[in-house]
Amino acid sequence: MRECLRCKTKMIENCSIKVEGGGYGIVMATDDKRLFANRIGKPKVAICPNCGEVSIYVENTKNLE
């Protein structure tokens, strides 16, 4: 359960990010010289239903090691 950092309300998790006008999506990666190096995974979003705060996170943190 994610809790909003602003108002402490339980957030709605597992939402996705959509980019309008392009079908490329968003990929998070660590800094490297290779083109598609060290992919971290698809970002997830949690949204606070009370104040509208948005939090972006990844579920599999093992890819950060």
Rank of each mutant, 00 (worst) to 15 (best):
E65L: 01
M1Y: 12
R34C: 14
L64M: 05
M1L: 10
R2H: 10
V58Y: 02
T30Y: 13
M11E: 02
T30A: 13
R39L: 13
C4V: 01
N63I: 01
E13A: 09
E20W: 06
K44I: 06
S16V: 08
R34L: 14
R39H: 12
G41M: 07
G23E: 12
P43F: 04
D32V: 14
I40W: 11
N14G: 00
V19P: 08
K33E: 15
M28L: 15
I12F: 04
S16I: 08
I56Y: 03
A29Q: 15
T9I: 02
E13K: 04
V19N: 10
G25D: 10
C4N: 03
N63E: 02
G22K: 09
Y24L: 14
I17Y: 09
A46D: 01
E20M: 03
I47N: 04
I40C: 12
F36H: 14
K33H: 15
E53A: 11
K18Q: 07
P49G: 00
N38G: 12
G25I: 13
S16D: 10
N63C: 01
G21V: 02
L64V: 04
K44R: 05
I26S: 06
L5V: 06
G41W: 07
M1D: 05
D31N: 15
G52N: 03
K33R: 13
C51L: 05
V45K: 03
F36T: 13
V45P: 00
K10C: 00
E53K: 09
L64T: 03
C7Q: 07
K8R: 14
I47Y: 03
D32I: 11
K42H: 02
T30C: 14
K18A: 07
N50Y: 09
A46N: 02
E65D: 02
N38K: 15
M1H: 11
K42I: 06
I26E: 10
M11Y: 07
N14V: 03
F36V: 13
I56V: 14
I47F: 03
T9F: 03
M1V: 08
C4R: 01
E65K: 02
C4L: 01
I26W: 10
P43G: 05
K33I: 15
C51T: 05
L5Q: 12
I17T: 11
G23Q: 09
